[in-house]
Design a protein around this nucleic acid. Structure first.
Length: 285
DNA sequence: TTGTGTTTTATTGCCTCC
DNA sequence: GGAGGCAATAAAACACAA
């Protein structure tokens, strides 16, 4: 599409593929449709015909803008979504509309843009949350796996201790199996502070025999005294909090969100998104 | 054709800025 | 106080299935 200059007549644009831009309108009965060029400057129009004048002043009834008018407005909106008074008047003249109509169109267009933008942002936020949740679930499984591994090893150690006083030679293999390597091989003196061995980790007299909140000694052999099996590392409340916090995590960089228009704002209410484009100067949502 | 849902145009009321 | 912005909403125009 390109601009057209036509003598005294004003400038307009012509769709590359089609005919001169036209605006359609109805008569007062709303039944007869006519086509009218809309790219005319009315202050230069020599004879504004009466019918069109009536059209402009007819009792208010909603009239849809033509496709060309909308296209022109869209183009203008992309260039600048704000409407200065001079531009509004000029657009109104070019399109054969009331300045008020142009202003309303821009107002509604900004509202539509904002709605779409919110939908986009929501989608990005949702996928980001899903990704984090998947990572979290994965870590949770890993934790459970490691816990059960610890329990398994602990059972072995406890079993070994049970048999320490037992002279039955048939237990030797099991004892060897359960013998902590650090104590056997290193030649280092056995030290209660040495936590490299499973024995010292588990059987030190001042550690896991006592469970926090319990004054009684727990019988060795009860493997549950080492680590209480849990459903999760987090309580339900904590999990809920995690879910909530994921919506505004500290230090988390959300994926880039694409916007339709350039120069987005940097705004704390933007859920931490790296804002790349600014639709409106008034962005304050 | 008609009922219904969606989109577009326009109004209203409130708020902010100059 | 006026102009212009926005949100909420009304209502006309449109799309479309039954």
């Amino acid at each position: 599409m390109y601009w057209l200059q036509n003598g005294l007549d004003t400038v307009g644009f012509v769709p590359v593929s089609g005919s001169r831009s036209m605006v359609s309108f109805e008569d007062f009965n709303g039944c007869k449709r006519q086509e009218r060029p809309f790219f005319r400057s009315f202050d230069q129009e020599e004879n504004v015909d009466e019918e069109y004048d009536e059209y402009l002043h007819q009792p208010e009834k909603k009239r849809r803008l033509s496709a060309d008018q909308v296209q022109f407005l869209e183009k203008s909106f992309v260039e600048e979504n704000k409407l200065e008074p001079e531009r509004k008047v000029q657009l109104a003249k070019d399109l054969g509309l009331q300045p008020r109509q142009v202003a309303i169109w821009f107002q509604n267009r900004r509202a539509r843009w904002k709605t779409k933008q919110l939908e986009k942002d929501y989608g990005a936020l949702e996928s980001s949350y899903n990704s984090l949740k998947a990572d979290y679930d994965c870590l949770l499984k890993e934790t459970e796996k490691l816990k059960s591994e610890v329990l398994h090893l602990t059972d072995k150690v406890v079993l070994k201790q049970k048999h320490e006083g037992n002279t039955d030679p048939s237990d030797s293999n099991e004892q060897l199996l359960a013998q902590p390597q650090a104590s056997v091989d290193s030649g280092m003196p056995s030290n209660q502070e040495d936590h490299s061995s499973a024995k010292s980790d588990v059987l030190d007299s001042d550690s896991p025999h006592y469970v926090e909140g319990h004054s009684s000694l727990i019988e060795p052999g009860d493997s549950s005294y080492v680590l209480e099996p849990e459903q999760s590392d987090l309580s339900q409340d904590e999990e809920d909090n995690l879910s909530k916090n994921l919506l505004a995590p500290t230090g988390y960089v959300f994926p880039k969100v694409e916007h339709d228009y350039p120069n987005p704002p940097t705004n704390s209410c933007y859920f931490g998104f790296p804002v790349e484009e600014q639709p409106f100067g008034f962005w304050s949502y």
